[in-house]
Design a protein around this nucleic acid. Structure first.
Length: 849
RNA sequence: GGGCUCUUAGCUCAGCUGGCUAGAGCGCUUGUUUUACACACAAGAGGUCACAGGUUCGAGUCCUGUAGAGCCCACCA
């Protein structure tokens, strides 16, 4: 089949992907490699579109997987999709809003089934996009986070924790979004700096002997104050401890207590204690056994405890309280004040710390095991500093609130005795609202799990823990590759859960990629309109170009701006591969003679040397996940070594077996990065239908004669020098004289081909310009030699500087004595070579002047 | 307050265990239609590796400090 002039990705990509899929190429199968290689793809939202980060994830994971597959390992890239509880419900609420409905119009069951259908409608979308990216995932193992096996694992884990006392239910301060009506884990709260005020309020002592001034950013919470705290050693304020205060705007009397948490130098040195709405205050109240008064409801309104202010929105209440205090002349001062306030990461509503009953996991024991594993380096991190970072995080880990008050998620398998609030039991009959156990009636907890709770089991749940075949063969995973931003919420928890449930680390390596920002380094966001859509880029440049372009800038852990020029470079590279194939097809036909590789010319030996080194180097780099560097090595092996040198050289002396072989090797090398174009070529050349490139073995390059390879290097240097001189001296078809170089005479056709030299003759004439790379002279008219003088002078200068450098180093006895022998030898070699070049140049200069 | 990064060519970045006469892509300059490719070929220009010290025979690479940029965590009433 004749290949077209340029590679047009869209002509091939769909067919090629279909071919892989239909032939079962993605199914893990050991082809002689050592063991298995396994990655579970971090599941994207089932209803969403892939963004650039997903594109990068797939590119990295697929390159690694394809490389390992070619190493003969049973390679598995396992795809999945996430129900993404809260995220998806938020999206669906927007859909409802556009139909002038809200979640309050439906029961949780109704909502759940509506969202189920909504997601089902959009699920194909993401699968199509994975295919466009060329993800070599095994679709037969596709897992959805609401699949039975995932839910079952979540329930088992919950039960195990319950039985072992790691799960507790308690009324604690919870980060609550009053707009979305659900609590969050600490880690999900987004803190932002907010300009506000620090209000100083006078609290009169009950005995009338004076006042204590407190400072607060939230005056409305004073209605829920239960004490005022001062530092026990505070020189001015400690004397008030034990007295009481008549709390303004209420008729309550509250004590003044001493607690070390108070910082005397901050604010007024006296802190109002509102345990129901502040984490610190909550802890103080626990220590001092104080009551907790809730004045803000889960809807963000003041409760009946707020007296006259009941029913007001928090913001309104704040204004009203300030006004009332002013009226009573109790507002001592209002200062501008910037501080950090928790916000809902979806809607931006200020997070209210509210007292709620929720399920918590005691994280200490889990973190302890994870710390042990991390400190023992049981998991290799790319980059390693993320491991250190995770260790610090785990040392200070707090308990995890896993209850969410939303519909879309996995129901928590816990039921409460309707006659005894304290009596909770574990039961998985969550489809029923009430169950009977031992003659008692229990009502289901209406909440669902935090989505991260079930995703924490991802590595083993997807592989059919505990007794599935996959679990046996593929666990622990070889690699967990994901965004550095979910190191804490996901990676840390997978490690803890993996250790807790399976007793093993869930993966042996972690690769964390950074964020792709826009071209100016700003975060991409829909609202800014600076989002780059990977699917559009694939349509524009092709899937391979997208993959390589996005990887070309990648280094573990670092954020980097999106750079389209890299995609363009990669697109050109695909075209280069295509045209190499086209050239070779013209020479040797559709069926390159694989297997009959006999290197004859020095360029044959040389290209084998280059390809061998590239193949080995790429292997090393990929084992270390230095993807951008591996890509660069392949890029230059293909473009410089094969296209610019080997193919050009072949035009003077063709070796069809070699051409076919060289093509085969570069297609294999490039395949992990550019799967479509390489497979498209492979399929076009000969009958490869039974023999796909995707499952072909990684090339082990055939033997060559190193001496001959080196000879080509010499000729290469000669050619480069000739081209340089011809260009600088504006020569056309110059004659090259050489004395007795058999290398030159044997390769005169090659030299002529690549330099446009006119004649190459063996002669004793030393007329013209002496080359540095060989005992040869380029025949140049005397008139042109004048122009060359300046260049020689400059070259001489550079050589002298270099020699000075070498001399300095070699004169230093500490260097010659301490540096490794081969380094010193290299230096000496370099010096003598530079010196002889300098000699030649100086002789030349003398001759000209 | 704590932790972690980053600063190398006009732009975006590599440079892993110190040996560099510092690399790549894109851009730029000059020339070329040459048995596939102008998404091309050939030849070039361009950097005191943020700064200051230190360790070392030798530092872009290790250490300390300074300046600037960023990310994350924390109970900033």
């Amino acid at each position: 089949m004749k290949l077209g002039k340029t590679y047009n990705p869209s002509d091939h990509e769909l067919d090629i992907y279909k071919l892989w899929e239909e032939t079962g190429a993605f199914t893990p199968k050991n082809r002689g490699g050592q063991g298995s290689f396994t990655i579970t793809v971090p599941p994207p939202n089932a209803n969403g579109n892939l963004h650039l980060g997903h594109g990068l994830t797939i590119a990295i994971e697929d390159v690694a997987t394809r490389y390992q597959r070619m190493q003969g390992k049973a390679a598995l890239l396992l795809p999945g999709a996430d129900h993404a509880g809260f995220e998806t419900q938020v999206v669906y609420e927007k859909v409802l809003a556009s139909n002038e409905k809200s979640r309050f119009d439906f029961s949780r069951e109704e909502l759940y089934s509506q969202i189920w259908d909504f997601v089902a409608e959009n699920k194909d979308n993401y699968q199509t996009q994975f295919r466009k990216l060329g993800a070599s995932v095994d679709w037969s193992r596709y897992v959805y986070t609401l699949d039975k096996k995932i839910v079952d694992r979540a329930y088992e884990t919950f039960q195990k924790m319950w039985n072992e006392g790691l799960i507790y239910r308690g009324e604690r301060l919870v980060n609550f979004c009053t707009h979305h009506g659900t609590g969050f884990a600490d880690i999900e709260v987004e803190y932002r700096n907010v300009k506000g005020y620090l209000w100083h309020i006078d609290y009169p002592l009950t005995d009338g002997s004076g006042k204590v001034t407190v400072a607060t950013t939230r005056p409305e919470t004073m209605l829920g104050d239960v004490a005022v705290a001062v530092h026990p050693d505070d020189k001015k304020l400690a004397k008030f401890v034990g007295k009481t205060i008549k709390l303004p705007l209420t008729n309550r009397e509250i004590p003044i207590i001493a607690d070390e948490m108070v910082q005397t130098e901050f604010g007024t040195g006296a802190v109002k204690i509102t345990p129901a709405h502040d984490q610190n205050d909550y802890e103080v109240a626990e220590r001092h056994d104080l009551p907790m008064i809730t004045v803000i409801s889960h809807e963000g309104k003041m409760t009946h405890e707020a007296g006259d202010f009941a029913g007001l929105e928090v913001k309104q209440a704040r204004k009203q309280v300030v006004k009332a205090l002013e009226a009573e002349k109790l507002l001592a001062k209002t200062e501008d004040y910037e501080h950090s306030v928790g916000h809902c990461y979806k809607c931006g509503t200020v997070i209210e710390p509210l007292l709620r009953e929720q399920w918590f996991i005691n994280m200490k024991p889990l973190a302890k095991e994870a710390l042990k594993a991390l400190e023992a380096e049981k998991i290799k991190f790319y980059p390693d500093n993320k491991r250190t970072q995770l260790i610090e995080y785990l040392k200070n880990l707090r308990d995890w609130n896993i209850s969410r008050q939303i519909a879309w998620g996995i129901p928590i398998p816990a039921f409460q005795n309707i006659d005894d609030e304290q009596d909770w039991i574990f039961d998985t009959r969550v489809k029923q609202e009430t169950i009977e156990v031992n003659g008692k009636t229990y009502r289901r907890d209406p909440d669902v799990f935090d989505t991260w709770f079930s995703s924490s089991s991802w590595p083993y749940a997807t592989l059919d823990y505990p007794d599935g075949k996959d679990f046996n063969e593929h666990y622990p995973l070889s690699l967990m590759e994901t965004g550095a931003d979910i190191l804490y919420p996901w990676v840390s928890r997978m490690i803890m859960f993996g250790l807790y449930v399976t007793g093993e680390v869930p993966f042996k390596q972690v690769y964390l990629h950074g964020l792709i920002q826009d071209e100016h380094g700003a975060k991409m966001s829909k609202s800014k309109g600076n989002v780059v859509n990977p699917m559009e880029k694939i349509d524009q440049y092709g899937s391979d170009a997208f993959r390589m372009g996005i990887i070309a800038d990648e280094s573990a852990g670092n954020n980097r701006p999106y750079d389209e020029s890299k995609l363009i470079g990669a697109r050109n590279f695909c075209n280069k591969l295509w045209n190499i194939a086209r050239f070779i097809e013209n020479k040797v036909g559709d069926t390159p003679k694989r297997g009959s590789v006999v290197p004859k010319t020095i360029s044959d030996h040389w290209v084998l040397a280059r390809l061998k080194s590239a193949s080995e180097r790429v292997g090393e780099l990929l084992e270390n996940y230095q993807l951008a560097e591996a890509y660069e090595v392949i890029y230059h092996a293909v473009w410089d070594d094969v296209a610019d040198w080997y193919i050009e050289a072949s035009k003077s002396s063709e070796n069809d077996g070699m051409l076919g072989y060289v093509l085969e090797v570069i297609l294999k090398l490039a395949h992990p990065f550019a799967p479509f174009v390489t497979e498209a070529i492979w399929q076009n050349l000969g009958d490869n239908k039974e023999n796909l490139l995707i499952t072909a073995p990684w090339p082990i390059v055939t033997d060559y004669d190193n001496q001959k390879a080196k000879e080509f290097e010499q000729i290469k240097a000669l050619i480069t020098e000739l081209r340089q001189l011809s260009k600088n001296l504006k020569l056309s078809k110059p004659t090259l004289n050489h004395t007795v170089s058999s290398l030159i005479s044997e390769n005169d056709a090659l030299i002529k081909q690549l330099t446009g030299a006119g004649e190459i003759v063996q002669s004793s004439s030393t007329k013209g310009v002496r080359l540095l790379s060989a005992q040869a002279w380029l025949d140049v008219e005397d008139s042109k030699l004048k122009e060359y003088q300046k260049e020689i002078t400059e070259k001489i200068k550079a050589k002298k500087a270099a020699i000075d450098n070498f001399n300095k180093r070699l004169a230093n006895r500490s260097y010659t004595e301490n540096a490794p022998k081969h380094i010193v030898e290299e230096t000496m070699h370099a010096r003598s070579k530079t010196e002889s070049n300098l000699d030649l140049l100086e002789t030349e200069l003398k001759r000209f002047s």
